[in-house]
Simulated assay, not measured.
Amino acid sequence: MNLDVDPKLQEFREEVRSFFAKDYPKDILAKVAAGASLTTPEVRKAEMALGAKGWLASAWPKEHGGPGWGIEEQYIFDEELERAGAPTVTPMGVVYVGPVVYTFGTEEQQAQWLPGIADGSVGWAQGYSEPEAGSDLASLQFSAVRDGDEYVLNGTKIWTSAANHADWIFLLTRTSQEAKKQMGITFICAELDQPGVTVKPIISIDGKYHLSQCDFEDVRVPVTNRIGEEGKGWTYSQYLLGNERTSYARIGGKRSQLANIRAIASEIPTGGNQRLIEDITFASRLSAAEIKVDALEITTLRVLCSVKDGGSPGNEASILKIMATELAQEITGLFVVAAAEHGMRKFGDSVSPEWTGQSAFAAPGVASYLGARAQSIYGGTNEIQRNIIAKRVLGL
């Protein structure tokens, strides 16, 4: 793998960096830096700023509304977005369902859904997990019963990320009971703002609202909202999950976090007159995390380089999911150590104005630590990912 920097790629990096420095909404950057949650209008504003530039759907081909970038440009864009402190693009639309629509959907479905996803004006949520079907997703029982030209939807989806900002949700539904659990599952899209749909907030341990429970009671959607063939939804979901698991890498964000921790540890005295960076145990943990980011970056590039044009990463993406999420937990744990007694202060969406100086990082840092506990669970638990690696990658 050639790691030399192409001068044209460096020019591209400077263009992206300049955009975030000069043209991206400053109020969005400030709110994210304070550790506060964005409102739905702010999420739209942030994503439409990228959409207006043609950069929101960064991995999409030109024929479907994307910039047509190669792997290198996509990687640089993601790195610079995170380096700038911009909010992570909500993946449910551009990373997850969008590629499913343009790969398996009809021309009519592509015309209906892709433009709103690509320009950031329409939000999406992912309806996968259920109260009795989390990591064992194939056990789902959310039903879709065919009634003429419609499906009638009944059931509950839980831990639904971004449903509080979404207009649409894509659902894995059971349309028949087959001997093999993966069969009889169908991929259907539905509007959230319609009779019979109830979205209930789930406040997570970091004090924020980014998860929901979505209840469906006799909700009718047209058959034309089905992606692909009935009973083939599991196939489409596996295509989607490959994209999801590579999206956890977030190299640029991890490097920024570590640089921030190093600066904080170098400036705040802890343990009497001793500075934290001089503590051998802490310094070793920090250096080890920096090395792991390098390893994650190389592994991510290896996986991405193996992807064929228009394709999805394979089962090797499970390696990235494990590495990236466990490293995220390590990094946020370092924030808690650096916060010391300041970490006991209230965390959540409001950062008190009297929290000035270096201690201002403590509340959002602790909130990030608590929120990151879920990373090794969602998207398929890391235990499940290890099973996938053992069986499908190593052939054990």
Rank of each mutant, 00 (worst) to 15 (best):
L3W: 13
V5F: 06
V5L: 15
P7Y: 07
E14Y: 14
E15S: 14
F19T: 06
F20H: 08
D23Q: 14
K26T: 13
L29M: 07
K31Q: 12
A34M: 06
R44S: 12
A46Y: 02
A59V: 03
A59W: 00
W60N: 01
K62A: 15
G65H: 04
I71Y: 06
E72V: 07
Q74A: 07
Q74G: 08
E79S: 10
E79I: 08
E80T: 11
G85P: 05
A86E: 09
V89E: 00
T90L: 07
V94A: 07
V95A: 00
V97R: 00
Q109C: 14
A111V: 14
A111R: 14
W113Y: 15
L114S: 05
P115Q: 08
G116D: 10
G116L: 05
W124R: 04
Q126H: 13
E130M: 11
P131N: 11
E132Q: 15
A133H: 05
S135F: 04
D136T: 12
D147H: 15
D149A: 15
Y151W: 15
N154L: 11
I158V: 13
I158D: 13
I158K: 14
W159T: 02
H165Q: 10
D167T: 12
D167H: 11
F170I: 03
T175N: 08
T175G: 13
S176M: 06
Q177F: 14
E178I: 05
A190M: 09
A190Y: 03
V199G: 04
I203R: 09
D206V: 04
G207Y: 04
S212W: 01
S212L: 01
Q213L: 08
C214I: 11
C214S: 08
D215G: 04
D215A: 07
R220L: 14
P222Y: 13
N225P: 08
T235H: 10
Q238C: 08
E244L: 05
R255C: 09
S256E: 12
L258W: 10
A259G: 15
I261K: 01
I261W: 02
I261P: 01
R262P: 00
A263G: 06
I264H: 00
I264M: 03
E267H: 07
E267G: 07
T270N: 02
I280A: 15
F282H: 04
L286E: 03
I291T: 13
A295Y: 07
L296Q: 03
E297A: 13
T299P: 02
V303A: 01
V307R: 04
A317Q: 02
S318G: 01
S318Q: 07
L320A: 00
L327F: 08
Q329R: 15
E330R: 07
V337E: 06
A339T: 00
A339S: 10
E341W: 02
G343M: 04
F347L: 12
T356I: 13
T356S: 14
Q358L: 05
S359R: 10
A363Q: 00
A367Y: 00
S368N: 15
S368Q: 11
L370W: 04
L370R: 10
I384V: 12
R386T: 09
N387F: 10
K391C: 09
R392G: 05
L394E: 01
G395P: 03
L396K: 13
